[in-house]
């Protein structure tokens, strides 16, 4: 009885120490590397878009290729916040009069709006065609948010051991800022 107990315990510990522990460490490092790659690539893509003022299908494709080289699948959210300047009119007795002021409004375009331009339905057009380029203007804001879909291997194994269900992404990157150029 005593010997059997120690044997079982030793077997379990061996399983944890020699299999799970190294595996988890490796997977954790893999997640770290994936995070770093995604962060670097996001920054690169966003900077390219902000410095040129447009997005082309080639830029987007290269970005998605590079981040998917990490082996995870990602949810990519692009958002383009368009600044538009509108004059402010006052209505006095049914007459509109210009107040001399203006107001800056923001219009947000999501990834559907952007991807519809990059990849139109009649995709006979070549990738470098001008109509497949998404243009932004100076002063607009452009953001990219990337998070992994589902669970990474490291999270999945940790969840299995600890009997929990992680519902937040292991890799989350959001970068962006103002568009600085209109180089089209």
């Amino acid at each position: 009885m005593d010997k059997a107990f120690w044997n079982v315990l030793a077997f379990l510990l061996c399983a944890v120490l020699m299999f799970l522990f190294p595996l988890m460490t490796i997977l954790d490092r893999q997640d770290d590397i994936a995070y770093n790659i995604v962060l670097a690539e996001c920054n690169r893509f966003v900077d390219a878009c902000r410095d040129t003022g447009y997005i082309t299908p080639d830029m987007y494709l290269e970005f998605t290729n590079r981040i998917s080289s990490t082996g995870n699948t990602y949810m990519i959210r692009l958002s383009h916040i368009k600044r538009s300047v509108t004059p402010v009119y006052k209505q006095i007795d049914g007459n509109l009069s210009f107040t001399g002021e203006y107001e800056i409004t923001h219009v947000k375009y999501g990834e559907h709006d952007i991807l519809d331009v990059l990849y139109p339905d009649n995709s006979a057009l070549p990738a470098h065609d001008k109509s497949r380029r998404y243009d932004m203007s100076m002063g607009d804001l452009f953001f990219v948010e990337v998070q992994n879909k589902g669970k990474t291997m490291a999270t999945a194994i940790k969840d299995m051991i600890l009997f929990r269900d992680t519902d937040y992404p292991a890799i989350f990157v959001r970068t962006g800022g103002m568009v600085r150029n209109e180089a089209y």
Partner: peptide
């Protein structure tokens, strides 16, 4: 304004 817009959207 641009600074805070940028931060808020970020």
């Amino acid at each position: 304004q641009a600074f805070f817009d940028s931060v808020y959207y970020s």
